[in-house]
Amino acid sequence: MSAPAARRQDPDRDPGLQPERTRLAWRRTTLSGTVCAVLAVKTALHGGVSAPGVVACALCGVLWLGLLNIAHRRIRTLAATTAPAAFAPRHAAAAALCTVAMAVCGAALVL
């Protein structure tokens, strides 16, 4: 009978845990982004340290930080209120563009 007891303690809490699930989805996404960035850095520095490799590395690092920054802000918003506002299209576009830029960076490295 722990679930009803928990509900009684905090009536504002969403029983479906939607904000928490969204927060964890953001965490998973940053984890995927980290794996991607590590693979990009490995590709960039594969043939020894070179100027284009270092530039690509730095670029991927910046994109990774961008993604982390968006996720961090969103997670803070989700944690702050019980009924958080909808995600801003600008931030969604920024997150997607970080991903696209990483792929473009990868295409340049592969070629």
Binding site: R28, T29, S32, G33, V35, C36, L39, A40, K42, T43, A96, T99, M102, A103, G106, V110
Partner: peptide, 11 residues
């Protein structure tokens, strides 16, 4: 995440 996985797969 699917997109990131595809990109990681490319690398």
């Amino acid at each position: 995440r699917t997109a990131l996985a595809l990109i990681g797969g490319g690398f």
